[in-house]
Lab assay of single mutants.
Amino acid sequence: MTTFKLIINGKTLKGEITIEAVDAAEAEKIFKQYANDNGIDGEWTYDDATKTFTVTE
């Protein structure tokens, strides 16, 4: 398992979430479901060097 981080730069929600996932594809699926569940819709980026996803509304 690898640790992945999501940085949320939303209009109403900001913060960071860290999860353990098998790979970046699994982490992205989990993070996008979390964002969808919380009404966050924005532009996604991923930095493989730091294993960090960012979503900006």
Score class of each variant (00 low, 15 high):
residue 44 W to K: 01
residue 8 I to Q: 03
residue 56 T to A: 02
residue 44 W to Y: 13
residue 41 D to A: 03
residue 41 D to L: 05
residue 52 T to C: 01
residue 45 T to R: 07
residue 22 V to G: 08
residue 46 Y to A: 03
residue 46 Y to K: 04
residue 14 K to P: 09
residue 33 Q to R: 05
residue 34 Y to M: 11
residue 13 L to F: 09
residue 21 A to E: 15
residue 13 L to D: 14
residue 42 G to L: 00
residue 39 G to Y: 12
residue 44 W to R: 04
residue 34 Y to N: 07
residue 56 T to S: 03
residue 6 L to R: 00
residue 32 K to P: 00
residue 9 N to Q: 11
residue 1 M to I: 08
residue 5 K to T: 05
residue 23 D to K: 11
residue 27 A to E: 00
residue 3 T to D: 07
residue 31 F to C: 03
residue 49 A to Q: 15
residue 49 A to L: 08
residue 10 G to C: 03
residue 54 T to K: 10
residue 40 I to A: 05
residue 35 A to Y: 01
residue 6 L to Q: 00
residue 20 E to D: 15
residue 1 M to N: 04
residue 1 M to V: 12
residue 22 V to W: 05
residue 55 V to G: 03
residue 32 K to T: 10
residue 50 T to C: 04
residue 26 E to T: 06
residue 9 N to K: 06
residue 17 I to P: 06
residue 32 K to S: 12
residue 1 M to T: 04
residue 57 E to I: 03
residue 43 E to F: 06
residue 3 T to P: 04
residue 2 T to V: 13
residue 39 G to R: 12
residue 31 F to R: 00
residue 36 N to R: 07
residue 46 Y to E: 13
residue 43 E to R: 03
residue 4 F to W: 11
residue 14 K to Y: 15
residue 6 L to C: 02
residue 12 T to D: 13
residue 42 G to C: 00
residue 11 K to I: 04
residue 36 N to D: 07
residue 36 N to F: 13
residue 12 T to G: 06
residue 50 T to K: 08
residue 36 N to K: 12
residue 4 F to E: 00
residue 1 M to G: 12
residue 54 T to G: 12
residue 14 K to M: 14
residue 36 N to P: 03
residue 54 T to S: 06
residue 36 N to Y: 14
residue 3 T to R: 14
residue 26 E to A: 07
residue 41 D to F: 15
residue 49 A to F: 06
residue 44 W to H: 04
residue 44 W to Q: 11
residue 33 Q to F: 08
residue 26 E to G: 11
residue 7 I to H: 06
residue 24 A to N: 07
residue 23 D to G: 02
residue 30 I to A: 06
residue 13 L to E: 15
residue 55 V to I: 05
residue 5 K to I: 04
residue 57 E to S: 05
residue 27 A to I: 02
residue 8 I to T: 09
residue 55 V to A: 14
residue 19 I to A: 05
residue 47 D to W: 09
residue 35 A to R: 01
residue 23 D to V: 12
residue 4 F to L: 06
residue 22 V to M: 15
residue 18 T to Q: 08
residue 51 K to G: 15
residue 13 L to A: 01
residue 5 K to S: 12
residue 37 D to F: 14
residue 44 W to C: 02
residue 57 E to W: 03
residue 39 G to I: 14
residue 16 E to F: 02
residue 9 N to R: 05
residue 56 T to V: 06
residue 10 G to N: 10
residue 55 V to F: 04
residue 24 A to H: 15
residue 15 G to Q: 13
residue 29 K to I: 11
residue 54 T to A: 09
residue 51 K to I: 09
residue 41 D to T: 07
residue 24 A to I: 09
residue 49 A to E: 08
residue 18 T to Y: 13
residue 48 D to T: 14
residue 51 K to Y: 06
residue 55 V to K: 01
residue 48 D to S: 08
residue 16 E to L: 01
residue 46 Y to Q: 15
residue 31 F to N: 01
residue 55 V to M: 09
residue 16 E to V: 03
residue 8 I to D: 08
residue 33 Q to K: 12
residue 36 N to M: 14
residue 11 K to D: 03
residue 55 V to H: 11
residue 25 A to E: 06
residue 45 T to D: 07
residue 24 A to G: 08
residue 4 F to D: 00
residue 48 D to Y: 11
residue 39 G to L: 05
residue 28 E to D: 13
residue 29 K to F: 13
residue 18 T to D: 11
residue 39 G to C: 04
residue 27 A to F: 00
residue 22 V to C: 03
residue 29 K to D: 15
residue 42 G to S: 00
residue 30 I to V: 09
residue 30 I to N: 15
